[in-house]
Amino acid sequence: MNDNVLHRIRNGMDGFSKGQKRIANYILTDCDKASNMTACRLGQITQVSESTVVRFASQLGYDGYPAMQKALQELVRGKLTSLQRIEASGDQINSGDIAGSVMQQDMDTLRSTIDGIDRTEFDRVVGKLVRAKRIYILGVRSSSFLAGYLNFYFHLIFENVTLVQSAAGEIFDQMLRIGPGDVLLAIGFPRYSKLTMSAVHFARDRGAEVIAITDSKMSPLYTLSVASLLVHCEMISFVDSMAAPVSLLNALIVAVGKQKSAETAETFAEMERVWSRYEIFGYEDDE
């Protein structure tokens, strides 16, 4: 990216004040840590005031410090190791109230996602899924349970769904017949998996369309997809916060279900008959 935050800092170095140069040099030297610091903390580390940090962000062209911090986080998130995540996120978590800190971050992420989700793009994705000849769902590592969750419900709505298992040798076997008219729904968040990217390239080479569920326009999945749903997946220490992605999947399932309301109602009516006949839910009272 020619206009990322580090590029802006390097280009603007000659015009910075002494204090701003200290901020700039710290970010260029250790952007991993800087990306998770508050404006106050970054000011303390570089021995400038919080207001100087805020003005620095504005001088770079960002609408305040949070926007610059987000740009930094998107830049570095994809390459941090688990140990670097633990170190970089130290300022985010209140060790005296870990439960509250983590849940509050999840709530903040959900709010940001609600505000940022592109409703038009969401409707495009729903339309492409409903019209697809066959739907392939892929997510590896921490995204694999998201893929499995989506597959569970899509199997009750569609007859044409394949959950692509993430074992390296099996992915291409399972996608061997993918082609024009099919959709690969690829789920991927930092650190982006090369296995996911290989599957995406394979699907595109075969003429299928790729829909991405990922975190930002800097994601490698974004540039390779015909439609993308961007959702915040914040890092909390070594953990990927999946609160917002799960909520987005719930919205997607409900939206697709409404588009195929008759089929969905018929499927669940049949399932209720099966569940009732074979006593799937509940238990017998032996007393």
Rank of each mutant, 00 (worst) to 15 (best):
M1S: 15
L6R: 12
G12K: 01
M13T: 03
M13D: 04
S17P: 01
K18D: 09
Q20M: 13
I27Q: 00
L28D: 08
T29R: 12
T29S: 14
T38W: 10
A39C: 02
Q44P: 01
I45S: 03
F56S: 07
A57V: 03
Q59H: 15
L60C: 06
G61H: 08
Y62C: 02
Y62G: 04
A67K: 12
A71W: 00
E74Y: 05
G78T: 01
G78Q: 04
K79I: 09
L83I: 05
E87Y: 02
E87D: 07
S89T: 13
S89R: 06
D91C: 07
I93W: 15
S95F: 06
G100H: 14
S101D: 04
D106V: 00
M107N: 07
M107C: 07
S112W: 03
T113K: 11
D115N: 14
D118A: 03
F122M: 12
V126P: 00
K128A: 12
G139C: 02
S142P: 04
S142H: 10
F145D: 04
F145V: 15
G148P: 02
N151P: 02
F152V: 08
Y153E: 13
F154A: 11
H155F: 14
L156A: 11
V161Y: 06
V161H: 06
S166H: 14
I178H: 01
D182E: 04
I187K: 12
R191I: 09
R191C: 04
T196F: 05
M197W: 02
R204I: 12
G207F: 14
G207S: 11
A208K: 05
E209N: 14
M218N: 01
P220T: 05
P220G: 04
L230T: 10
V231D: 08
V231F: 11
S237K: 01
F238Q: 09
S241L: 12
A243L: 05
A244H: 06
P245G: 01
A255S: 10
A265C: 11
F268C: 02
M271R: 14
R273W: 03
F281T: 15
E287H: 14
